[in-house]
């Protein structure tokens, strides 16, 4: 273990904050897994369960914000502590939005009902798998303070973007020829997955800043 803070209570406050972010991230991961599964298996009951998790994630967001503000006000953190707190403030926003996006998927799944969109499952499932693993790895990178893993997450965003373009092309064709409403539902799900991957990228970029002190956003380093 690195040097602890001289004021051990400060160490405890940072540890508790970190743990709460990890718990929130765990809940968000559950939401994505269930949302994706509900789409693949067309299970509307699974979709309904995700909404209940959203309430908890929102609560965590507010609690973590409050913890960060309290530490900023009372401790005036510096250097890596300051970078960690600012990461906390930004990361919870991304996590909360990922949770919102999972709910969006579920709403579309409920709307799709029993209508079969099986032709699009392979592509959308592939997007879901990558987005999910990006978020998983971004969270692991945060927990392990692993800038290399975070960098890998950032580079994967392009894969999701490419799949999204492919899905759009196929779904436009489907909407013209077959069913506009269902095509729109499937397109919305793909859009949500693309956004989720962006949030995963944001988290990974923030982890790199926390660990290395280097801001790679908009630097072109991701590509």
């Amino acid at each position: 273990m690195k040097h602890p803070h001289i004021d051990r209570e400060y160490d405890n406050e940072l540890k508790e904050l970190r743990q709460e972010i990890m718990v929130m991230a765990g809940e968000v991961k559950k939401m994505i897994a269930r949302a994706v599964q509900s789409f693949i298996s067309m299970d509307t009951s699974l979709a309904n369960g995700v909404t209940a998790l959203e309430y908890r994630v929102n609560q965590y967001e507010m609690d973590i914000d409050e913890r960060c503000l309290s530490i900023l006000a009372r401790r005036q953190p510096m250097a890596s502590d300051l970078r960690f707190i600012t990461l906390g403030l930004k990361m919870v926003t991304d996590l909360e939005r990922i949770g919102d996006e999972a709910v969006n998927i579920c709403e579309r799944v409920i709307d799709i009902g029993s209508h079969s969109l099986a032709n699009f499952y392979p592509l959308i499932s592939q997007m879901a798998e990558i987005a999910q693993s990006m978020i998983h790895d971004a969270i692991t990178a945060f927990i392990e303070k692993d800038a290399k893993l975070a960098k890998k997450v950032v580079t994967r965003d392009d894969e999701v973007d490419a799949l999204y373009v492919e899905v759009i092309n196929k779904l436009v064709d489907y909407m013209v020829k077959e069913n506009v409403k269902q095509g729109f539902n499937a397109l919305s799900i793909a859009k949500v997955l693309e956004r989720m991957a962006d949030h995963g990228t944001n988290i990974a970029e923030q982890v790199i800043f926390m660990v290395k002190g280097k801001d790679i956003r908009h630097s072109g380093e991701s590509s």
Binding site: H5, A79, S80
Partner: peptide, 10 residues
């Protein structure tokens, strides 16, 4: 420096 400014110096 990091240890000193973050209050980790013994």
């Amino acid at each position: 420096t990091e240890d000193y400014i973050t209050g980790k110096f013994g």
